[in-house]
Amino acid sequence: MAFSFVTIYKMSYDTEHVRNAGDTPRTITGISTFAELLENPSLARLYTSIRRSATSTGPELVETTTVSKKTVYDYLHKLEQAGLISKVDDDGGTAVYTAEEFELTLTVRETEVSITPELIEVIAQKNEYPAIERVLEDYGIVTYALTYDLVKAHSERNVTIRQIASLTGLSPGAAYDLVEALYSILELGDDESPPTTYSPDDFDEDEGDLLREFADK
Rank of each mutant, 00 (worst) to 15 (best):
G169L: 08
A165R: 01
I161F: 00
N158A: 12
T160V: 01
L178P: 00
Y183C: 10
L186H: 11
R157K: 15
P172G: 09
E156T: 13
L182P: 08
T160M: 04
Y183N: 11
E156W: 07
L182A: 09
I164R: 00
I185Y: 11
P172K: 08
L167M: 12
R162T: 06
R157T: 13
I161C: 10
D190F: 07
V179S: 01
V159I: 11
A181H: 04
V179E: 01
S166G: 07
L182Y: 03
S155R: 13
L167R: 03
G173D: 15
E180Q: 12
D191R: 15
L186D: 04
Y183T: 11
E180M: 10
G173T: 15
L182F: 06
A165I: 04
E192A: 12
D177G: 01
D190P: 07
G189R: 01
L182V: 08
G169E: 08
L186W: 09
L182S: 05
R157C: 14
S166N: 09
L178E: 00
G169R: 01
G173F: 07
E187C: 02
L178I: 02
I161S: 08
L170M: 14
A174Y: 03
R162A: 11
E187D: 13
E180Y: 09
I164M: 11
Y183E: 13
D177K: 08
S171Y: 02
A165N: 07
E180W: 07
L182K: 01
I185S: 05
A175G: 08
E180A: 14
L170F: 04
I185F: 13
L182G: 11
G169W: 06
P172Q: 10
A175P: 04
E192S: 14
T160R: 07
L170G: 00
T160L: 11
Q163F: 01
G173H: 10
T160E: 08
I185H: 05
R162W: 03
I164D: 05
I161G: 11
G173V: 15
L188G: 04
I161L: 13
L178Y: 01
D177C: 01
L182D: 10
Q163D: 09
P172R: 07
D191A: 15
G169T: 06
S155Q: 11
L167V: 03
E192P: 00
G173M: 08
N158L: 15
S171V: 03
A175R: 06
